[in-house]
Amino acid sequence: MPAAEVYGPLLAALGGRDERIVVVDAGLGSSMQTGAFRASYPERYVNLGIAEANAVGVASGLARRGLRPFVHSFSNFLARRAHDQIAISVGVGGLPVTLIAGSCGIFDGRNGPSHFAGDDLAAICTMPGMTVYEPADTIDLETSLEWALASAGPVYIRLRRNGMPQSIGDPLLTREAVRLVRLSVAAPVVTVVAVGAMLDEVLTACRILLDDGIVPELVHVLRIKPFDESAILASARRTGRILAVENHVTHGGCAAGIAMLAAREAIRFSALTLPDAILPAGDPRWLLAHCGLDATSIADHLSSLLS
């Protein structure tokens, strides 16, 4: 049974509040959950078929007319196939085109390596003027959509299409670009950075550690670019050690950026990321364990790191 749609209703609601929003599909509308928007606002919906480069170019033209296009496809078909169109047709003019990139990393890995990108951040974050979000839950997602709509330039939202939690953690989790979460009143010994959708697993790993008497401090990165280093620095100066956990390969991802920050500040750093390998197909839980990114593996890694 397909997972409940969490993105589709949010998009339709956003469409009801701003008539500049145009949804552009590239032949994956049923996967990208655009049906509710299309049903409500057919005059502001267009499906351009299986042609991502054209979809991005058309969206740039719509943006030049003062509209706010949201282009939908899988991360690999946007960040890889339409990379040059994002860079030139959208990027040079700094146009407010929002790219909704599904199937990022291993959370949508059932279809194998042709259908998900574990390297899309490397392609997208290198573009000047690009803003990048990776929401961990639907509240994050709603926040990202709001911020994308308010943005004057291009935005890339790394969307976990299936199985995104409704709400992670306790109400203390405020919605910030980068947020610090203190899990205990005791002094923390390590700063664990959860990048985007890894928050769920990392939070569970941190609770395992707390049960074992190890106190981590958690930092969640919702906005990957532009990057706000203040929360990570504030925590790392207390703990003296950073572990970054990311659903992306090491090169060109958020963890790589945090590594540079750690090097500058002479703070010990390590990371758990996707391996430099062509990954097999598998469901999210299996792939998380396969890549050592499930909560138990993260907790084990931290325990051995700190012992």
Binding site: V58, G61, A63, R64, I88
Partner: peptide
Amino acid sequence: QASTGSLGQGLSIGVGLALG
């Protein structure tokens, strides 16, 4: 009207301008 130079991109932009 549009930054170009990487060939093949202008007609898509034109489609967007006309549609928009």
